[in-house]
Design a protein around this nucleic acid. Structure first.
Lengths: 204, 204
DNA sequence: AACATTTCATACCAGGCGGTATATAGTGCG
DNA sequence: CGCACTATATACCGCCTGGTATGAAATGTT
């Protein structure tokens, strides 16, 4: 995050591309192919820059991926934060499920969840990326657990409910939806799963 | 499938390894790293043979993978067929969930579901493998739907239940469990998810 | 023993990978 | 202008990938 008021004018040749736009295009490629599946050749082509420009601006492939992951979570996963603000536990679940549907079935050809893709695909190397993704997801889980604990305290969930169990179960469905979105599944089928799950969801 | 009674004695030098055992070891590697993530070097080392032996016996990497996938489904996914024989719809769900737990948390370090790994990881190439995996999964889904349709007709599910919706929802949880098993999740956490989901499951 | 046949082990191949050296072109400053 | 500085484009690097050519070793047949 550049502090614009401290940065003086650059002295050298100005770069000819927009790093934010380039990062957005890199995100699309990672989203489609995963970390290891995305080659430098495809990345640079999609970003419209050459390899030296990429390395000068973003460091290396791993650093680029982490920045793309940050962008992904800031833009595409914003619905998670919004969902937690729903007034009821059921509303949280609804927003979470429907929000994931929008994200996983993006208008672009890209489908599925970048986090899941990166988690499952990168068994070989890039342990640091695995840990990165796992840590991010874990923080979301704890936030959801806390939200459900509040709901239980407020009488918004049936007495005796286990917030942790409900949160984990909900996240499991979300991850399953991500896998299904990656396969041939249609949006209508995902909506059916969401509806079925919400019908099972405990009501106050 | 060799027809032993038509095969005469081999004329050349006998092979020094057991193809079945080698295939089993190849399966472990694919299970850990996915199709693209498993390199010939690691495969041959685990199988205890050299590359020319691998190609002479199994064809190429893709053919080897498909044979490993067959073995996987025959051995590791046998619980799916068994689950469908359960007397009640709830029993089917229980066996399916607990069976997946056993498979995904195998005693060996390998975890997760080979199908899910191959489906999610292979976005780049190997479209034929994607289709292979998707087709296999689809056949399991239709079998489960049929089983739940029978359950509905037998009054084993609440009237008005939608067999297809229940089956899809159950499979979504199964796939979510596979993802969770791939991450850092402990077996106890997976058991908690299963218990929570079964508590939500419609009872007659 | 000589042969045909099959497997084995070593070395090798072209191609793609992530990453970089180098030289040129474009900018603000003095 | 010349200078310091940074981005650009091209070409290149070592390494690993999936896949193979080749010759030796081990069998059954004649």
């Amino acid at each position: 995050m550049k502090c614009s008021f401290t940065s003086t004018k650059p002295r050298g040749r100005p770069r000819e591309f927009d790093p934010d736009a380039a990062l957005g295009n890199a995100l699309k490629v990672f989203w489609k192919h995963g970390y290891e599946g995305a080659s430098l050749a495809e990345l640079t082509e999609a970003m419209g820059i050459t390899k030296p420009s990429l390395y000068a601006c973003f460091g290396n492939k791993e650093a680029l991926f982490k920045k793309a992951l940050d962008l992904y979570e800031r833009d595409k996963l914003a619905y998670i934060g919004k969902a937690l603000e729903a007034p009821s536990a059921r509303g949280v679940a609804e927003r979470l499920l429907n929000g994931s549907l929008e994200t996983y079935c993006g208008s672009a050809g890209a489908q599925g969840c970048l986090g899941v893709i990166s988690l499952v695909a990168n068994t070989t190397e890039a342990a640091s990326i695995r840990e990165h993704v796992i840590a991010r997801r874990k923080s979301s889980e704890t936030a959801l657990i806390a939200r459900f604990e509040r709901a239980l305290a407020e009488g918004d969930l049936p007495p005796g409910s286990r917030p942790e169990a409900l949160a984990q179960c909900l996240f499991t469905i979300l991850q399953g939806l991500a896998v299904k979105a990656q396969a041939d599944t249609t949006r209508a089928e995902l909506e059916m799963v969401i509806g079925t799950f919400l019908a099972m969801w405990p009501s106050r």
